[in-house]
Write a protein that binds this DNA or RNA. Structure first.
Lengths: 335, 335
DNA sequence: CTGAAAGCGCTTACAG
DNA sequence: CTGAAAGCGCTTACAG
């Protein structure tokens, strides 16, 4: 068990006090340049790194960001974490992640003083979340929401309405009349926004949105497949817009087993542009969520808050572009 | 900024000393049961959580595990992290993850005393890794490797040889004679082990392994597609075994554009059983990596080490079962 | 611009 | 079985 190099040794090594080393470490303004140089040299030579716990205990920062990801691990956590990892590493922060039991764990992380700030992918249980947010606010710990925005707290989300609206315009150019919207869970704000945007876009093109038939899945691949008999028996649709790519994939699977050709017999579109969407056959027309960018932006905004700079615009809405591929009946294109 | 409840207040609340509260907290043996009850009641009532930094600074544990994931974020990090998250949460540990610049960051995490132990997904750069391992060893910080094993350090990996061997047996049952193995990067131990196991299995079935033609990709989807012209022009194969599913997917994409029907004109198999493998068409025959289990096992073993219990078997090899689907020419089956 | 000293909230020998 | 006290390695008023 090798002993750690401490601030004391650095101080001795270059003939200053611990206080001065600490000031250099924290880039405080009132230190003489020559002293800074001396101290930095000693830090280099000794290979010193401050003990994070001593720093945190005496009122300094932990240089740790807690990331809370609800429920099941989803595919998109991957690019989301990648974005956060890169930005945090470059800014000298570490990532503490938790998914399992994330709400109660959040309280513990807070009490144990483990993080300088939180990034929270919030979904259901708005009341439980609100409690947490209030507590964070009281303790002066900054946080950023990803997903469902609360008007009073900073957030990053995507333009669900705009993306679905663009899909409606695209459907309209195809001239589809018999249209089905396959929604996600009833309480899911994303799904509701997509439905809203879809209707909006259709109306703009002179199509009565009430003619869209709506069915409700649960975002799973399974629910896409299993709802198909019901959807088909309600009248043959020309086109289905699923509120996410997974359900669209389920539909595709079902159609394959039934000999229904996509896009010839039925046009199909999803939402998300998940990893697999460009690789399935036919490739899926969808709306892209810029997940990685959400991750890096959330991290950047949070660090900005932690370091004392207020946000110019507390709510960032990222564009969600339409990605046209084969499943809607358009010609195959590259990516 | 609400003040934190400290051990002092808990001690006062139930009329004992800080030392005693600390002992209850750390489940030390020599405390009277009635005292334990009293202290625990106080902890409950006050909603006390120990300040992790004070604990760590005074020689206690950080209850944090550092997870190092090399290079690019891969699909399988998702189930891997899920497994780690669940186990660590249940055992009261937190996860510090880092991918970007993970080797130098590892040294910093160590110096800053951020973690009680490390889980390292090691791949290339064995010498750089060895340095890190030695340093960890010197400081008495336990760690577990996932992937390439070093004989002297505990590790979790999968039975690449056995999985590929089972695939060879399956190919042999199909009676394939013109066989191609599409390898991964030259330095990749997984790929080499799979090649070794494949040859072994073929030999066991009386097929001369030297008749297998080998090509080398880089594990990317792209490399699967782009190598196909070369593979095909070298003599028409009956079956291709790709060292991972992504390259198999690339092959599939290429064949689709060229009108080569899988499995009718060409049989195909991969390795990994990634998320998409069961959903592409035809569904992919492959070997499953039990990733989630690797994550949870690694975490369990590491916590065991941290808490002072030596491992009975330092090297765990998880089985990698053959998953037969459509792409090899077998009848479609459920998952 | 710099130093001496108090203090952050725990754990852990040392006594008893 | 329990307590008084030292100490972990930093930061931060307070002086100068």
């Amino acid at each position: 068990m090798k002993r750690q190099i401490t601030i004391e040794e650095v101080a001795k090594h270059c003939g200053v006090s611990r206080a001065t080393v600490s000031r250099v470490l924290n880039k405080e303004p009132r230190v003489r340049p020559s002293t800074i140089a001396k101290v930095e040299k000693a830090i280099q030579e000794l290979g010193y790194n401050p003990n994070i716990h001593a720093r945190a205990l005496s009122g300094g920062s932990t240089k740790t960001i807690a990331v809370l990801l609800p429920g099941t691990w989803r595919d998109y956590y991957n690019p989301l974490l990648k974005g956060m990892d890169e930005v945090s590493a470059r800014r000298g922060y570490y990532l503490l992640i938790r998914s399992y039991n994330y709400l109660s764990e959040a309280h513990r992380i807070l009490q144990e003083k483990r993080a300088d700030g939180f990034i929270i992918r919030n979904m259901d249980q708005p009341e439980e979340h609100r409690k947490l947010f209030r507590k964070l606010e009281q303790q002066g710990i900054p946080f950023i929401l990803i997903g469902n925005p609360f008007p009073q707290y900073p957030s990053i989300h995507i333009d669900n309405v705009g993306g679905a609206r663009a899909m409606a315009h695209h459907f309209s150019r195809h001239g589809f009349k018999q249209i089905v919207f396959l929604a996600g869970p009833e309480t899911n704000i994303d799904s509701n926004d997509r439905y809203y945007g879809f209707r909006l876009g259709l109306a703009e093109c002179g199509f009565d949105p009430d003619r869209v038939r709506i069915f409700r899945g649960d975002y799973s691949i399974e629910s896409g497949s299993s709802l198909m008999p019901e959807i088909l028996s309600s009248g043959k649709p020309e086109a289905i817009f699923a509120a996410n790519d997974r359900m669209a994939l389920g539909i595709l699977q079902y159609c394959r087993t039934q000999g229904i050709r996509i896009p010839n017999d039925l046009a199909l579109a999803g939402f998300d542009d998940t990893f697999f969407s460009q690789y399935i056959h036919p490739s899926l027309t969808t709306v892209r969520q810029p997940i990685l960018e959400m991750g890096s932006l959330a991290m950047e905004k949070l660090i900005q808050l932690i370091e004392g700079h207020p946000l110019a615009s507390p709510h960032v809405i990222l564009p969600a572009p339409l990605i046209v591929r084969e499943s809607c009946g358009c010609a195959p294109t590259q990516n």
